[in-house]
Design a binder for these strands. Sequence first.
DNA 1: TTGAAAGCGCTAACAA
DNA 2: TTGTTAGCGCTTTCAA
Lengths: 364, 364
Amino acid sequence: MTASRPRRATLPDVAALAGVSTAAAGRALGGYGSVSEDVRRRVAEAARQLNYRANRLAASVRTGRTDTIGVVCADIESPFFARALRGISDVAHEHGFSTLVTNSDEDLASEREAVQLLLHKQVDGIICAPADVTQVDHLAQAQTGGTPVVLFDRVSDHLEADAVVVDGMKAAYQAVRRLLDLGHRRVAIVAELRQPREQDWARFLTPQAEVSLGELSPSEARLLGYLRAHWDAGVPVRRELVRRTGTYAAEAAYQQTKRVLALKNPPTAIFTVDNLMTVGAYRAIRDLGIAVPDRLSVVAFDDLDWTVLVSPALSVIAQPVYEMGAEAARRLIRRLRDPEPAPPGTLFMDVTLVERESVAPIPT
Amino acid sequence: MTASRPRRATLPDVAALAGVSTAAAGRALGGYGSVSEDVRRRVAEAARQLNYRANRLAASVRTGRTDTIGVVCADIESPFFARALRGISDVAHEHGFSTLVTNSDEDLASEREAVQLLLHKQVDGIICAPADVTQVDHLAQAQTGGTPVVLFDRVSDHLEADAVVVDGMKAAYQAVRRLLDLGHRRVAIVAELRQPREQDWARFLTPQAEVSLGELSPSEARLLGYLRAHWDAGVPVRRELVRRTGTYAAEAAYQQTKRVLALKNPPTAIFTVDNLMTVGAYRAIRDLGIAVPDRLSVVAFDDLDWTVLVSPALSVIAQPVYEMGAEAARRLIRRLRDPEPAPPGTLFMDVTLVERESVAPIPT
DNA sequence: TTGAAAGCGCTAACAA
DNA sequence: TTGTTAGCGCTTTCAA
């Protein structure tokens, strides 16, 4: 007969073996309160002998802290979120926090579920890339309940919270403006644009229109930059060059790109608004055998491993992704540590337009 | 004056408002035991009114379960682990488990720390890609303590645990054998090979040598396949064509590849053993402007987004990464659910040699 | 510095 | 079906 599995040693067990009170053992092991060197040694020895393993859950129930940050990202698998997550977890780890990561897949219902889960697990704070910046009641509720929230990659006008983002509008504006300045007159854009808000696009075109970034998804903000660049350059926007995938998937971008390149009057340049769109679009360009940059100039949002591996190397708008994650974590931790923190604000991080080989002027 | 923050509602609060006992409220909300429809409704209503948020930590302290799987991966940022993690978390989520993810960066000390953290947080089980398959005492200890472990991407002879892996030896053998059969006589390999065990390599070369996969790191297993392919084909192994980076970094692979291609008698084919090695090696090939496959055939371990985006498209050994993660999670969950589970075993998943455009025969 | 005792928020026996 | 009661393993008064 095998011996029945012995119950795992608990604090009282350790205390008993060391010949001290539970409280003393807890202090010795947990590093709080004050303990004599002698007690500390005996307790440590007893813990070792019993192969004691502290139960931080029990501690958390008492203290109300879990030293855990909850993260809601759209998709860990995307290079963008993977890298950001690395920034978040590095900083978190540095400060003694763990991270609990969930995926929303850009779906509001999943995001709500994820936030509930994180709250039930009593995370100390949440970093979230909201699927819909206009639907953030669940995040507001988390805050009211005492769990601070930091927005990542997206700001919302409907939530008073810290946010770490780039100005996608400005970045796209620069990139597209550059193409227009090089003489391109037919610049295509491939973007997710989940909500088809064509009436809004019209409004975007009015230069006076005050559009808040906190009302736009990243792809909308980037489209806005595209539109305004055209406006400022006096180049009309061609409806057929604005390609909407409606979903965050490379395959959809592949289809849209094939379609736009098959127009009888095809674009001479193409702008992709994020890394999945870029993968899909670039695959289409390659399959069609179109010469870059001779027949088509390409600019992508987000830098990736492979943008320097293809020929010609892609010109891109690079975001400081790791640093964005790291900074989001820093802001959250600051808020957790500081009993009276500063009012929340949005940090806009700078992007870099990395010019490589995929852009050429239109011969005049 | 703002009102002082009200204490968060607890189960007794809800019970009181609903006019039932704490136990009844717990049953109604937690979905265990039996409750009348009437009580269920009243409790639900009270919970809503008080904005009640269950504390699953407290429940876990009682039940001893957290419904959480701990994962130790080398680097979430690597496409390999990112995708595997997606497999793990999808399956986990399906079965009501969350995942707590940590990074070891292929460092044994960090891995130990990570495992400790997961145990302290009382995860129900652990999925780990061990940094060193010969140093797994901490994992054995987790098991003895009642926390099952599933190995991922690597087997160890020193741990009796489930494992989900590919046979890297066989896969590499096939790929290299294919190159040799095409007439290549100088095939380079770029591999991590953290431990420089040259004396072992000699042993690998003896066809009779029984080398267990459970003693080898993935890169060593793949090297072994490379060596045996040579042996079986009667092609001598050239020491200068075996390039060791010693570290898991694209930059190191870049350097090694540049160096091997600069030999006065350079290789006519190159085999890279994982995705980071591939990125580095391919960048070197591109920078050097070497024509693939005319002057150099290329085969990579692991398929990636961009392998079809470069010209020519890369021939690769594709692992079922997502499925490997998913299967690891399934095995762990089975073990958690089943009180008397089957003895642990290793699942070898099949790889696919995807032939694309980067391999050509040597003209005879 | 130490120990006794209370209690964090929940679940599980048990009895009613 | 319901309530009473006793904990889970830990931290934190409080008094000694």
